[in-house]
């Protein structure tokens, strides 16, 4: 397999053909590329669209997982750049990121500013942990420990409690394989690494380095990315646009796709 094909397989890259500039969609933690399914049809006639899964999510190649590389958001950002290179994209890419992918897109655009034309950041949060009093990301470390415990229970589940004790080693993958379609991330170990990387990263200092036009889309009420965080990002990224979507929750692209599409259209053009 050629290196490019390897990368496209590793990240399960899918291209939705269309004439026009490139929209590259990056999903958030806990999701996969399917989450863009209600958005992409709106741009089919005006854009070439690229969706993919991060390693450990969706139908990506689990064998490519590397706990060190993906223990840092720059590892995921590198994969975004790899995908652009594999598709021979040189410039003019509009990066559309959800949640943690906003930070990943920010890192990718700083590394290769010539590649990106614009960034659409849906529900960004450069640092989920509170650093009172100057910055309130929304969470304390204990909340994230609780999340990891919940992930453990939900990913591995009841079956694991009853699995044969002695032969249980190495069988986790068998058990989770049966659950493979229940969650967008299929491997509990990988998902936990992604969770830690997502929630313990602090990319606040990177925001001011962004030189690409940015659209910051905040949800009206969003536990994972409070309005104050959107304002913080808006202040840090010079020339950025902040728009509040009248949506509760963290997933406007799924809950209210029309609102999201409309906001995107205004920014990227039709």
């Amino acid at each position: 397999m050629l290196p490019n094909e390897k990368i496209l397989a590793r990240n399960n890259v899918k291209i939705i053909d269309g004439d026009g500039p490139v929209l590259l969609y990056a999903h958030g933690f806990g999701c996969n590329q399917n989450m863009w399914g209600r958005v992409t049809p709106a741009f089919q006639s005006t854009h070439k669209q690229v969706v993919f899964d991060y390693v450990g999510s969706g139908k990506s190649d689990l064998a490519a997982f590397d706990a060190v590389k993906y223990g840092n958001l720059s590892g995921y950002a590198q994969d975004v750049l790899d995908i652009c290179d594999a598709l021979d994209l040189k410039s003019g890419v509009t990066f559309v990121g959800h949640s943690v992918s906003c930070s990943i897109g920010v890192l990718a655009s700083i590394a290769r500013p010539e590649l990106f034309n614009k960034l659409v950041l849906l529900g960004p949060n450069p640092c989920f942990i509170n650093h009172a009093p100057e910055y309130m990301g929304g969470f304390e470390k204990e909340d994230l420990e609780g999340l990891l415990a919940l992930m453990e229970q939900n990913y591995i589940g009841w079956a694991n409690y009853l699995a044969p004790v002695v032969s249980a080693k190495g069988q986790d993958s068998v058990v989770t394989a049966e659950l493979s379609d229940s969650f967008c991330s299929t491997d509990p170990t990988v998902a936990k690494v992604f969770a830690r990387t997502t929630f313990f990263s602090d990319n606040r200092a990177d925001l001011s380095k962004v030189k690409v036009p940015c659209l910051i889309l905040q949800h009206r009420t969003d536990t994972l990315a409070p309005l104050s965080v959107g304002e913080y990002i808006h202040a840090e990224i010079a020339g950025s646009t902040l728009k509040i979507l009248e949506v509760q929750g963290h997933c406007a692209h799924m809950a209210e796709p029309l609102l999201f599409i409309e906001a995107m259209r205004d920014f990227v053009g039709t």
């Binding site: 999701c31 909340d143 609780g146 992930m151 939900n154 967008c184 994972l224 929750g249």
Partner: peptide, 13 residues
């Protein structure tokens, strides 16, 4: 809080 994060990152999607 932990359940809220799980709701938003896993359940709603």
């Amino acid at each position: 809080m932990a359940s809220r994060i799980f709701l938003h990152t896993h359940v709603w999607p």
